[in-house]
Computed example of a mutant assay.
Amino acid sequence: MPKLLRICFIIAFFFAFTNSHINIAPVLGADESDVVTHGFLACGKTTYIVGESGTKTWSYPHSTRDGYVLDSGEIVLTLSKSKKHPGGAVVAIATDGTETVLWKGSQAEVNSAHPTDSGTLVITEAGNNPRLVEIDRDGNVLVEFSLQCQKPNFHMQTRMARKLSDGTYLVPHLLDFAVHQYDAEGNVLNKIDTTVPGDTERKIHSWPFTAIRHHDGHTLVCCTNGNRVVDFDESGEIAWQLTNEDLPGPWLQDPCGSQLLPNGNIVITSYAGGRADVNAPKLIEVNQEKEVVWTYSDGQKVGIHHFQILTTNGQNLAGPILK
């Protein structure tokens, strides 16, 4: 059993919960060697880890917005606002189950927390002063700047902010229909327009939620209400796009999170994928030819806000986590 899954079983005592309605659907190729299986962390209405067999091995009793399982086995979670955490929070769960609060939200919401290679955390807060902060593990603020986005609608200010290898920050702004790249002083270095080309009336249907910077300056963006996943090239032009016309059914329903796998395949979470059909996939994996490789359904109307693929066919995922 891979080390990561052993850790998940060790901390599985947290909460027992039902496995009904779970459907892992690998897509078969010419022979059984082509079968794809994944283990993953799910963040959203409920928070849990699923092994490759479809069995839930760990859960956490709080709604979450973002999450990472680190190489050490520690789990970093961005908590939704609640009575206990009215401004949201970021917590770390150690392998022995010990929980540490790393950040208490001071405004309306904490929307993401990205653990960087240097051990810091990049966090976004929504509210009257939408901002990005980078902190060390003791909570000391190393970088702080205001986000240049609309202010009236707190919930629609931003989502999955990530620090890039060059020290800049990639931040999607939903109601601004744009992904901004900031320097450490908060200057906007460039902007990707996520509106549908030539369709000004449907701008509201292209809210950017997750933005992933990858090969040669490309940026893969999940556009929630637009039900589209778009790969923009370095100049901001569309290089690749996935819509429901490319899939067996209307499976993209509020595509919030995505992850680019080492083999170039893309996994997408369809937050509201079960509203019309509870058997519709919550997670969809496609290759560059837009062929469906793997799906996961949970029988719920809504649920997975973001996720992290942890293992594939029994092996821990290699390389940087691009999600």
Rank of each mutant, 00 (worst) to 15 (best):
I24Q: 12
V292C: 06
V143M: 12
V292P: 02
T78E: 02
P208A: 07
E289T: 06
N227I: 01
G249Q: 09
V267L: 06
F307A: 11
K104D: 11
I268H: 00
E134M: 04
L5Y: 06
V36Q: 13
S118D: 15
Q300W: 07
A108N: 10
V35T: 14
N140E: 10
G186M: 03
S235Y: 09
Y182M: 05
F9E: 15
V267K: 00
C8H: 10
V292F: 00
V302I: 15
T195H: 06
T200A: 15
C256R: 06
I309A: 06
V50G: 05
N263T: 06
P115N: 04
Q288H: 13
I284F: 01
D166V: 02
M156L: 12
G88K: 04
T116C: 13
E52Q: 13
A94M: 07
A184G: 10
A272L: 10
V171R: 04
P115D: 01
G314K: 01
P172F: 01
P130D: 10
N153H: 11
K45R: 15
K56V: 04
L247E: 05
F13Q: 14
H305D: 09
Y48M: 08
N153M: 08
R213Q: 13
V267W: 00
L189R: 13
L79M: 13
A25L: 07
A30P: 10
F145A: 02
T95R: 12
H38F: 04
H62C: 12
S59D: 09
